[in-house]
Computed example of a mutant assay.
Amino acid sequence: MPLKWSTELNRNGEVLSKPIHQKAKSVAAEFAAAADQRRSLSKEVVETLRECGFGRHFVPTIYGGENGDFTTLMAEVGSLGGSCASTGWCGSLYATCGRMASYLPVRGQEEIWGKSGPDVLISTSYRRSGQSIPTEDGWILSGQWHYLSGIEHAAWALVCFAPSEGGSRYGAVRVEDCKILDNWETLGMRGTGSHSISLDNIFVPFHRTFHKRELFSGRSRSTEGKQYQVSPIATDPVLFMAVALGSARDLMEKWAPAGLIRSTDSIFAAAYARSDAELDAAQLLLDRACLNCDQGEMSTFVMLRNARDVSLAAELVIASTERVFRLLGSHVHSQSDTTRKWRDIQTLVSHIGIRSDLNFKNFSNYLWETQRMNCAHSFSK
């Protein structure tokens, strides 16, 4: 039998057996096919995510949030990924967007959570886009922003724009002020509903914005706590990759009892052992990365190593799932749940935060430059 997936445990080694989380897995599985077809999560799934507290996970406790940690969240979204990758992804995204909104000035946080409570769902577009016109106390935004996962069910969106004075800022806009463009057409992860939005002369006050550099340097000036002192470069890809690993684990667990693995068949036996080991190795990489995140402020080396490890975990997951598909041939392609998970994994690992060509290069270049500077310093003595 496959090993128990270690992310079913939180950082204290306790099993995540809350009835609500079991319900979330069940509901996600029930509506997974519908989400794939409709290119959006069902209302039943979204309400379950809200009930589970994904939106409030990183919301400051002053607003009723959980002030949560990364390791527990990784366990939860990874478990959901085994039922439906799109559900796990949106659960992760809603949680991380709550963390992003915690970088807003206190007045901006009050507008989002003060009256509505901590379960407000927020989406984001990480890429800078659109146009901004400065005013006395804010900016007027127009244009299009892309890839806002779960935007149809969110109340707020965080969009990145470039003020005329330089740099980049994130601004919080009400979704009711946005036009959602139904343009999410992809191979996999269809249920995330990562559509674009359009803004037409929407005013965003200064107190509903924050500098992008604050977020990516992991230095919140508005909210205290370890989870607000770490860069999304080190955190978000870990959570996203946990979803892919959850889907891959589910594929493996369904492969073995289907009778397709025979102890007398050395080819299948070797393939299963190798694939299971690859997933275990990927899990270990993500576990260490999450523990680093929960320590809060980290060095540049650790941050880039986290990103490197996520990329390697992605390669291990892809290798494992590709091996299954090559060996099982037409049988596996006739199983809609299996092919959907395969499509979801392929699409998920193409996310820019997970790509190995970028993360491997950044890690190596930093390490080599650091060593070069150390050598130069030694010779100068």
Rank of each mutant, 00 (worst) to 15 (best):
L49D: 03
S17Q: 14
G114C: 07
W342C: 09
R249L: 10
F216G: 00
G329E: 05
L286F: 11
P60D: 07
E152D: 10
C97P: 11
A248W: 08
V173P: 06
Q229S: 02
M241N: 13
L284Y: 07
A157K: 07
Y94I: 10
T347F: 04
S17R: 12
M373A: 12
A95P: 06
T209F: 00
L148N: 09
V120A: 03
V332A: 15
G114W: 05
C90R: 09
C293E: 10
D177M: 06
S125H: 01
Q283C: 15
K4D: 14
E278M: 12
A270L: 10
G98N: 09
L328C: 13
G193R: 00
N374M: 12
I202M: 01
S102R: 07
S334W: 03
D265G: 11
A24D: 02
E44A: 13
A244I: 10
A271T: 09
K212P: 00
A28M: 03
S40F: 00
A376W: 02
E111H: 07
C160W: 02
C293R: 09
E136V: 07
G259H: 06
N359K: 05
H333W: 10
K212V: 06
Y228G: 01
E30D: 02
K115D: 09
K341R: 15
S42W: 02
G329D: 07
D69H: 03
D276H: 14
S132P: 01
V238E: 06
W184P: 03
